[in-house]
Simulated scan of single mutants.
Amino acid sequence: MANRSGKEATLHQTILSEIEGRIVSGEWAPGFRLPFEMELAEQYGCSRMTVNKVMTQLANAGLIERHRKAGSFVRRPHAQSAVMEIHDIEVEVNSLGLPYAYKLLAQRKRKANAEDKSLMSLPAATPVMELLAVHRAGRRPFCVEERRINARAVPEAAEADFSQTPPGQWLIAQVPWSTAENRIQAVAASPEIARHLDVPEGTACLSIERRTWSPAETITFVRLTYPGDAHTLVARFKPAQGTA
């Protein structure tokens, strides 16, 4: 009896480790239906009860969702951002237990246009670095980054290799800022954003627009667009003195 109990415990850990590894690595992407419990029990040569315990543990850990009759599915990670902070997207992804990847899609230096004047209060002809990138969590796109950097305030940006280092990480490490502003809204995915996020056009998304300033001028404007069902914003604050 003790040997059988020990064997079941070992199989439990084996099944748990293998399934968890496939989910965390992205091999089994969000929405993927796992094999049914009877199939897994047959595959591993164990009791269905052992498999059921594994599934319960995975569900409690937030890795899968169990639906009666339909089966078990890989749960889509739900990320959280602090509204009042400038955060590192790689840290966000890693906090979900997923591998992070980044790809620069476009980068160009140009002169400020009317939209830059509106978004960043830049005079005409100010040099601007414009970038487009996608951040990934496992095998799925996590968010699209559309960024403009004031190259007069940050001339080093013109020579930076943003194909290897995300611009947000680079700016946090290189450029001091004194003020930041977040603007948050729900948007429908445009054809371009939908393509980069691998979602249908018009999908509800969460857009965070951020401006940061040095004491002298605007440093950068960035728009981060996330699939709306996979991201939550969190704010923690205290009441002002004398308020209820």
Rank of each mutant, 00 (worst) to 15 (best):
V24K: 15
T212Q: 06
A29F: 02
T126I: 08
A106L: 02
T165R: 12
G242C: 10
V54Q: 02
D88L: 13
R136D: 12
T50F: 03
T14C: 06
T220H: 08
A180W: 11
I64V: 15
V83N: 03
G168R: 01
G138L: 03
V234I: 10
P155R: 11
I184V: 15
R152P: 00
R211W: 00
L233C: 12
N52S: 14
R68D: 10
L105N: 04
E65T: 15
E159Q: 15
L58N: 02
A79M: 09
F142N: 00
S118E: 15
Q57L: 12
G168A: 03
R33M: 05
G168P: 00
L16P: 04
E217G: 07
S25N: 08
R110N: 00
M55L: 15
N3Y: 10
N60E: 15
S47D: 10
V187C: 07
T220P: 01
Q169I: 09
P227D: 07
E92D: 10
I23R: 01
S5L: 09
V128I: 15
I219H: 00
Y226S: 05
E201P: 06
T220R: 00
K238S: 14
S190V: 08
G21V: 01
Q241T: 14
V51F: 05
R4D: 13
W177Y: 15
S178H: 14
P35Q: 01
H87V: 06
A61D: 14
C143L: 13
H231V: 08
A216R: 13
V175D: 04
E8I: 08
E181N: 09
I208K: 12
K238A: 13
R236F: 11
